[in-house]
């Protein structure tokens, strides 16, 4: 659990004890800590891929981490396109990665 985390820091000191938060990412059960963002909790669990480009399907992860670039969009429960870097993880949260969307009107593609 602590592998992805910086527990001890020479200047900032030891990481405070925090409550565990249980959540799922694409149905995988994961553990984060209270007060942290979805992006931080996922990265600490080794999850770098948050979505794919809606048209090309190319994989994407966090880029700016402070809400500007919109690259970290995930779906949370019924809410679509939530910025993982600004949204605090909650107990029982169901996080889903963004998927490729159909392009029925694109030349050369059917369906």
């Amino acid at each position: 659990m602590s592998k992805g985390r910086i527990i001890d820091h020479p200047i900032l000191g030891r990481l405070d004890e925090r409550e565990e938060v249980h959540f799922t990412f694409d149905e995988n059960k994961l553990i984060g800590y209270e007060g942290e963002t979805i992006a931080a909790a996922l990265l600490a669990n080794g999850e770098r891929v948050l979505r794919c480009h809606e048209e090309t399907g190319k994989l994407r992860g966090i880029y700016c981490n402070i809400g500007h670039c919109m690259e970290c969009r995930v779906n949370v429960g019924n809410q679509k396109s939530v910025r993982a870097c600004l949204t605090v993880i909650q107990e029982g949260m169901e996080v889903k990665s963004g998927r490729k969307l159909p392009t029925p009107f694109k030349k050369g593609e059917t369906q």
Binding site: K3, I6, L12, A40, A44, H53, L59, I62, N65
Partner: peptide, 23 residues
Amino acid sequence: WTLPGVMSIGAAQVMTNVHRVRV
């Protein structure tokens, strides 16, 4: 530059010092 694992330097700063998560 759009590959997962590429991030702005500020993103790495926030992950490291604020969230204390290894990039």
